[in-house]
Design a protein around this nucleic acid. Structure first.
Lengths: 196, 196, 196, 196
DNA sequence: TATGAATGAGAATTCATTCAT
DNA sequence: CATGAATGAATTCTCATTCAT
């Protein structure tokens, strides 16, 4: 792929960028901030990444892969589609809580203007959403969920509900509701909402 | 008064900024782009706004006020809380469709890191969310919605579901689902999900 | 002369400019600051003055004329050249004390770069210095002052001594020495220095 | 160290700024003029200096240190206070003649409004003046100068006399008097003026 | 590979001056 | 004469990126 990941500096820079982008936002973050945080020289960044945009893109790819892998392994042992959705919610929110920086970047920067949401085909994110769609289809096949539910709409509704809840956590300091409560509430509305 | 709105140039600049910010994003947009679009000199911007940030903040305030007023008047004649939620969904999505630029900015720029979501207390947006919470509480009082539903969580879940759907529209060109279908689906999951 | 002084606004603007230039310096002062201080509109300034430079030039001319007239009338009744010098010193320092703003501008702005000390022929200031040279020549003719004293050098030495003392007053808040002490000291060194 | 002086670019920029500020004055001088004169890129200036003000401040510090060191070494071998003052005058005026640019900046810009004479504590200049005060005190101790001479006034009178003479040189092209004549005249008035 | 000093294009903002009212 | 909103030229400073060491 032409990208040097062999050296651990690649990952150190990704980690540093995650922290800096989360704290300042993409446009406010300086490449030299990331270099300093990673403990490398400014120029070293350009050995591992094409440019500043590429740091963000790579960060997404790496972190989304981690999120994706984690979610798939969490759901692996569960067979009931309803349980899967409940567990998806809990896992997603727990992940947000445990990886504030990653969550904030995905929340905030990923949604940012043209440069990223428009020009960059975020396939990992699409896959993540499709985990939900697949569970719904599976549930419909098993007769658990209503046939008229449209998976393409429902996946967004379910993800959006979780996501808005996360934003609240990411952007506010106080925590009015704990994760389990929120995860339970949201999956219960949704499950009851689509149940046959 | 601190801000000169008496002159229509204030609104012309807001309109121009809405268009430019939606197209390029806040950081990519040049003040001179906005000036050109508004048909005024660069310096004129600074008669009506403190600086570039202030254009965005003012834009939010003005547009959110419009959105808020519109929603309240749409819901005015409806008494049944379930109908209100359904109509909220339809109105919200229609608004997004009819005001792509405004929607995109609220979607994308409003979520942008520290500068805006953290430092800027977005009270108009909080009010908008609270329209949903109020409807839910009203429904609980009337015994239509389950008592254990937490309005603070549910308002975010419902808004998040709509919002994720909107993002899909705003950021993609093709439209797989029409508004009414999406609005109907989402409000039906949700209503069934919280119904007593 | 093409300059409208008939209206008292001309003088109000000069007064305002004196205050503003003294406080902020020529380049830091905004024409609109002066307009506000004078209680006129920005555009009005340009009815009475060519441009910002012209305000400063006019201010010098007017204020130096005042200083010149004042000094000449103060010295009018004195016949002894030594007394004249002593009185020049006292009058000069008293004037500085009583017209801090004017003094500060002459001290500071008049000396400023090319624009003013180089391109602007400051004839009033030359006349002021020549009052001293004339007194010295008069004293030499009367045999009071040494013949080898060069009036062109001595006038600058005497004025410079007074001027440096003034700067100290203008720029510092505390006053270590009072006017009469300083005037007396300086004129006594100088008189004894040039006496035959 | 906070400021990188290790590289000779620091001094090249100081030299360039000295030339440009002398020619155009601080406010008229563009940072890019200085960069061009120094043969570096605009941005390079900001590696060595905080901002434009800092260039001027640093220039003062460096050049005044040079002036100070030069004066102290010139006076080192002289024991008689009267001779010291005479030599001070000659050295000062020679320095002015040989460093027109430096002299002009110290003459003109240093005196400039609030930004520099008020907010910037010019300690090097104070030290320079105190060389004179110290000589006068020494002379008083040795019984050569009159006891009633106030060193705090006299140092300003002497320096002011020299300074006004320098201004004349710096700002005019023609030279009516040569250095030695002027230095001799001024120190002779002054010495005779304060002698016991 | 790694460095970090140097580069220079780019953008926000200011403010003297104008001119329609 | 007087106004003050509008203009737009001008300038400082930033920072992603390069490249000689």
């Amino acid at each position: 792929m032409g990208k040097r990941k062999d050296n651990n500096k690649y990952y150190r820079i990704i980690q540093a960028a995650t922290k800096i982008f989360a704290r300042k936002g993409f446009y406010q973050a300086k490449v030299s901030d990331i270099a300093k945080e990673a403990g490398v020289a400014d120029g070293t960044i350009y050995i591992y990444f094409e440019n500043k945009d590429d740091i963000l893109i790579s960060l997404f790819e790496e972190q989304m892969q981690m999120v994706l892998d984690n979610m798939l392994s969490e759901l692996a042992g569960i067979s009931d589609p309803a349980d899967k959705l409940t567990h998806f919610a809990r896992t997603h929110l727990k992940l947000v809580e445990e990886n504030k920086d990653v969550a904030e970047i995905i929340q905030v920067e990923l949604r940012q203007s043209s440069k990223f949401m428009k020009e960059y085909k975020n396939e990992k994110f699409a896959k993540y959403l499709n985990i939900i769609a697949d569970i719904i289809r599976e549930g419909q096949d098993k007769g658990i969920f209503r046939k008229e539910v449209m998976p393409g709409v429902a996946k967004r509704a379910f993800f959006g509900a979780l996501d808005e809840m996360s934003r609240f956590w990411v952007l506010s300091s106080r925590k009015e509701y704990d994760i389990n409560t929120a995860a339970h509430q949201i999956s219960s509305y949704f499950l009851q909402g689509i149940r046959a």
